[in-house]
Amino acid sequence: MSLTPRETAITIRGLRKAFGGQPVYSGFDLDVRRGDILAIFGPNGCGKSTLINMAAGLLPKDGGDILYDGREVSEIRVGYVFQNYREALFPWRRAADNIRYPMRRMGLAPAQVESRLQSLAERFRVRFDLNRYPYELSGGQQQLVSIMRALAVEPEVLFLDEPFSALDFETTLSLRDLLQRVLKDLGVTTILVSHDLEESIVLADRLLMLTRRPTTVADDVPITLPWPRQAESLAAPDFMALKARCLDVFQRAVAA
């Protein structure tokens, strides 16, 4: 996929990373278009999370560049949603204070913090009490709070690390609906790591399929299904065809 520099939000060049002498990435390149939702899918241990953790600046890279419009990750605003919401939210703060936290760290004025909190709650149609503590909320509500917290700083890039894997199917469906609507509304460049092929296709503009280590791109699939993609889209023929193609690529990538 070739992009002009203006369209590119994230540029990865020659990325290298090894764990205990075992290379995970040795010269990995990737461009992500501004406003795209990029899903990364691959076998276990292929380094999906490693990639976004390096991109988010949580894990040092051994070599190469990850640049955001020419800037390092430390110079931009990012949001990150962890897989395990139980361990990512601060249980000693109320849900609303969890969402306020990154805005306060940014130094936003209190009035602005409140108005952003308000508009996020409206966007996500929050009907539960945000003045509760996280442990008083359901799993889906807690992960929704995590997502709101990540979006509160109006991030230039949002990272989602298997955000639905700890939730039941019904909750996943409704949260998926909500998330795709908000992300498309806001136009946030997003990288989603997922081990659920269906979820990757439903949420993404583009699906990157990775191989086993040392990790390379097995396939780079544009997902052109119309938005919004609801539960019914899962049964649509073009969705089924995409899924079949991806499954085939995946099986070859894992077998290789």
Partner: peptide
């Protein structure tokens, strides 16, 4: 919990801030 420390870091908390906002609470 390592995840909480990382979460605070990504939200722009400095080292001393993480100590006050996360580590002390985690240790409480």
């Amino acid at each position: 919990r390592r995840t909480r420390v990382l979460a605070a870091r990504i939200m722009g908390a400095s080292g001393p801030r993480i100590l006050v906002d996360v580590l002390i609470w985690e240790a409480l």
